Amino acid sequence: MDPRSEVLLRQAELFAGATLLAGLPADDLLGQLPAAHGWSWHAGEQAALAGRFAGRSQFGVNPPEHGFDAAVLFLPKSRELTDYLLAALAARLAGRPLFLVGEKRAGIERAAKQLAAFGTPRKLDSARHCQLWQVQVEQAPSPPDLQALARRYDLQLADGPLTVVSLPGVFSHGRLDVGSALLLQHLEQLPAGHLLDFGCGAGVLGATLKRRYPDSRVTLLDVDAFAVASSRLTLSANGLEAEVISGDGIEAAPRGLSAILSNPPFHQGVHTHYQATEQLLRQAAQHLQPNGQLRLVANSFLKYPPLIEQHLGPCQTLAEANGFRVYRASPR
């Protein structure tokens, strides 16, 4: 059981009614709170919840339409995303309780101050290195317009400017990260066919690929619903059409790809996770055509070349700058 869930269950009587659990972990919390429902924006956790608790958790960037008498937000990493989620929940809870739970090292005490916009926050519990806070929503805000919270910026690329639209919580929100900037300089001579942007974020790479290779089919894949929505906005802002899908890892990707391109993340919340990237490297060959290609940018301290060569083929370093390397490999 996730320690945040354990803290909630210490006060289980508060959540016995129609409670919305926003950003909940994929543990047994819904089983312990039979009147509760979930709202998730992580495709992997949603799939696990749907498998165990059919019909009791919704995936997406907006709260479920059905009513609820209380809501719990599991603190996300991004302050801007926390702002949006708290406002979206508080808008539906006039006169009713809104709870916030999170780990101390994730900044729960700082985040609890954001509850003051709706009433007087109070700490209910502290255990398992986590805290649980509550506010009675006395000042319910208007429902927030998520697209109005998007940040837009233009990239000056060789074939013209590209408009990028990123939503709160998306990787490198409102700016181009160093790794993606390096990879964008090394997209030449990709094999024709079906291109995949793995871990697409705001869609910078996928949109660039579609514009540069207009005759290729391009798919953008991310585990996060806010990233998927951002990628669709980026494509639309540039008059481009491509497939955008949500899924947890390379297992969700199509087969028969001509190329997989990625600036894979290795952080999830306050924790460091390499699993998605390592699975990508282990399974890329299963998703690539025999003449296909993996092109990846990563922090140079990450020891990916041996893993690439073990599961794919000879690994070539195309570029190195600012602590990042671009690798290229093809199936044996």
Results as ranks from 00 to 15, higher is better:
47 A>H: 00
80 E>Q: 14
104 K>C: 05
137 V>G: 06
292 G>V: 05
167 L>R: 10
291 N>G: 15
192 A>P: 03
293 Q>L: 15
157 L>S: 11
165 V>C: 12
145 D>I: 12
223 V>N: 14
96 R>V: 09
66 H>W: 03
24 L>G: 08
160 G>E: 07
140 A>R: 10
207 A>S: 13
46 Q>R: 09
247 G>A: 12
212 R>L: 11
150 A>E: 04
55 G>E: 09
136 Q>M: 14
305 P>C: 06
304 Y>F: 03
182 L>A: 13
16 A>P: 08
172 S>T: 03
39 W>H: 09
271 H>Q: 15
252 A>L: 08
259 A>K: 03
114 Q>I: 07
154 D>C: 13
265 P>T: 00
122 R>A: 02
134 Q>S: 09
280 L>E: 05
25 P>K: 00
154 D>S: 14
221 L>M: 13
277 T>Y: 02
56 R>W: 01
166 S>W: 03
99 F>W: 14
205 L>F: 11
279 Q>V: 10
49 L>K: 05
85 L>T: 00
62 N>G: 08
89 L>T: 03
315 C>K: 02
306 P>K: 02
253 A>E: 08
304 Y>T: 01
33 L>M: 09
136 Q>T: 15
142 S>H: 10
89 L>H: 13
301 F>W: 15
21 L>G: 02
180 S>A: 15
193 G>K: 04
218 V>M: 11
215 D>P: 07
205 L>D: 05
251 E>D: 14
275 Q>V: 06
324 F>S: 06
323 G>H: 11
146 L>K: 12
174 G>I: 04
268 Q>W: 07
58 Q>F: 10
126 S>P: 00
43 A>W: 02
248 D>M: 11
144 P>I: 02
109 E>Q: 08
49 L>R: 11
103 E>C: 01
203 G>S: 09
23 G>N: 04
126 S>F: 05
205 L>E: 06
205 L>Y: 01
283 Q>Y: 14
105 R>C: 10
14 L>S: 05
153 Y>C: 01
182 L>E: 10
251 E>T: 10
24 L>E: 06
50 A>C: 07
312 L>W: 00
225 A>L: 07
112 A>I: 01
223 V>S: 10
215 D>G: 12
295 R>I: 05
81 L>H: 12
290 P>C: 03
270 V>K: 07
237 A>K: 14
103 E>S: 06
126 S>W: 12
152 R>F: 09
194 H>W: 03
57 S>T: 15
237 A>S: 08
95 G>Q: 10
282 R>P: 06
216 S>C: 15
249 G>N: 06
179 G>V: 05
70 A>H: 05
95 G>A: 10
324 F>C: 07
137 V>F: 05
159 D>M: 09
198 F>M: 12
258 S>E: 05
12 A>C: 07
241 E>G: 12
152 R>H: 15
43 A>F: 04
7 V>D: 00
216 S>Y: 06
25 P>C: 07
